[in-house]
């Protein structure tokens, strides 16, 4: 072989080997990065570019976990649900486990926003006590004919009824929030149970199930108590209303306490949005998810909205006017 050629070959050979090693190293590093599943995701520093959209189940899971640690529960929920939707069995137990944490946190947030159940219950009991006292004094006043006592009982009754109304509203709001928390926690319980079913070695899930069951039991107790108090308050308000009606009957009009005219409408004012008195309604169907119309039913509705015959769009609300004569070029 020509020595010159040999030397050139050697040079190229060295360069080639170096290039090969470099490329190989580059490939290996990329492969390691891909195997980690970090492709497509980056940690997000405060002022760096935003993280890329997750593309595989691992990315969704990691993104959800990140959001969970940051406290962004709603986004975390979305990511975990996306991870579960992909039906990758390797990640389902972990995703369910973390989703349970998300929902538990959401329930806790609902409770934070809610009026304190104990305070509401206590206030309800106080209002009920006051109402009882008012009813007693009212019945005493009704038994006698003392006008001042009648008026006093009437005014007290009005105050007690207003207090009952406000307290009932507070209790209702507390119940709504507690109910929302309960549904979140029940869903969290389902998630942990599912995680345990898929991975029977998940001791954390088992422990969390016990904790949540206990918390749910306490929440249900509170709800039951508040419901009971709400019912009692409603009943008492009705009784006070009856009493006030009787008192009104006994108090002459000139002696009626001020602000009397609006009292009868108090109940209606509370329900400005519902059907009017006297209208009968059928039994509602609560708690069921929405079901769309069938295509036949939708077709009927669309046919009813079709234009044709004398069914016309409302073109204008004013009188019809003759169009102005246009002067000028007609393009």
């Amino acid at each position: 072989m020509n020595s010159k050629f040999k030397i050139k070959n050697e040079k190229w050979g060295r360069r080639g080997r170096a290039a090969l090693v470099f490329n190989f190293a580059f490939l290996i590093l990329n492969f390691v990065g891909a195997a980690d599943g970090t492709n497509g995701t980056h940690t997000n520093d405060t002022n760096t570019a935003p993280e890329l959209t997750p593309t595989n189940t691992r990315d969704f899971f990691n993104a959800g976990t990140r959001r969970l640690t940051e406290g962004k529960l709603r986004e975390a929920e979305g990511f975990f649900q996306s991870a579960l939707t992909r039906q990758d069995e390797r990640f389902q137990p972990q995703a369910l486990h973390n989703l349970g944490h998300v929902r538990y946190g959401q329930g806790a947030e609902e409770l934070k926003k809610s009026p304190d159940a104990n305070a509401a219950s206590q206030r309800a009991m106080n209002a009920l006590d006051r109402g009882d006292a008012v009813l007693r004094s009212g019945s005493v006043a009704l038994a006698g004919n003392d006008l001042n006592k009648l008026i006093e009982a009437y005014v007290n009754g009005r105050g007690a009824r207003k207090e009952l109304r406000e307290t009932a509203d507070l209790v209702r709001r507390a119940m709504e929030a507690h109910g929302a928390a309960l549904s979140k926690w029940q869903r969290a319980l389902g998630d942990f149970k599912s995680a345990l079913e898929l991975n029977s070695n998940d001791a954390d899930a088992k422990r969390n199930i016990e904790i949540i069951e206990e918390a749910i039991a306490k929440l249900i107790d509170k709800l039951r108590k508040m419901a009971q108090l709400g019912q009692m308050m409603g009943q008492q308000r009705g009784e006070i209303g009856e009493m006030m009606k009787q008192l009104r009957g006994k108090i002459p009009a000139p002696d009626a306490p001020p602000g009397d005219a609006g009292e009868e409408d108090e109940d209606e004012e509370e329900r400005p949005n519902g059907p009017r008195e006297g209208q009968k309604e059928g039994k509602g169907r609560e708690g069921e998810e929405q079901r769309p119309l069938s295509s036949q039913e939708a077709g009927w509705i669309l046919d009813a909205f079709k234009l044709g015959g004398n069914k016309q769009l409302p073109m204008g609300q004013g009188e019809e006017k003759k169009p102005k004569d246009k002067k000028g070029k007609n393009w």
Binding site: L84, G190, E197, L198
Partner: peptide, 8 residues
């Protein structure tokens, strides 16, 4: 969503 009794 998942093959479990308490699944969503």
């Amino acid at each position: 969503l998942t093959p479990t009794a308490e699944a969503e």
